[in-house]
């Protein structure tokens, strides 16, 4: 079961997710301490392993820093559900084997604190709190191939061998 942390905001950028003042390291545990700090300084205290982030349009815009994806993963977030994603963040997530859910109705169907159960294979979110099923389009095959390999580097090293 995943608890939803809902941010009714568009354009949540990678500076808010992982402020540049902490980019003098790439130590993931260190980065994770500051995850979403400039958006919600209490997030790291509330989040539990398996939770989800839910947001509006263009999530992850701005800097290409993959540190944003690492921080979100390291605090244990299982997926980000957003109305849409910025291009580089989307790529970075797939390249890390991290599943993103694009859901235009994200903010209408999911409220802060809702308990979700996600069936990635069939593209279904069961919102247990609201008592509704929400369908989503699973990621395209090429992305799944990379995710199932555990990320782009695993994917290419398998091919290189």
């Amino acid at each position: 079961m995943a608890k939803a942390h809902v941010y009714k905001r568009d354009h949540i950028n990678t500076d808010e997710i992982m402020p540049a003042r902490y980019l003098n390291t790439d130590d993931r545990a260190e980065l994770a301490k500051h995850c979403l700090e400039d958006l919600d300084s209490d997030f790291v205290n509330k989040v539990e392993a398996g939770d989800c982030i839910v947001a509006g349009e263009d999530f992850g815009c701005g800097s290409s820093r993959e540190h944003a994806v690492w921080a979100i993963r390291t605090v244990g977030v299982q997926t980000v559900i957003a109305k849409s994603f910025a291009r580089i963040f989307y790529r970075n997530a797939i390249n890390n084997g991290f599943y993103l859910i694009e859901l235009p109705a994200a903010l209408e169907k999911i409220s802060d604190g809702d308990e979700l159960e996600i069936d990635y294979k069939n593209g279904l979110i069961k919102n247990k709190t609201a008592g509704i099923d929400i369908k989503f389009n699973p990621l395209p095959d090429f992305a799944l191939e990379i995710i199932n390999a555990g990320g782009l580097l695993n994917h290419i090293t398998t091919k290189m061998k």
Partner: peptide
């Protein structure tokens, strides 16, 4: 175009990218 570190690593090793 700009990319993240994983894309960078893949391209540095192989000279190609999707």
């Amino acid at each position: 175009t700009g990319v993240g570190s994983t894309d960078l690593a893949a391209a540095l090793a192989t000279g190609e990218l999707w």
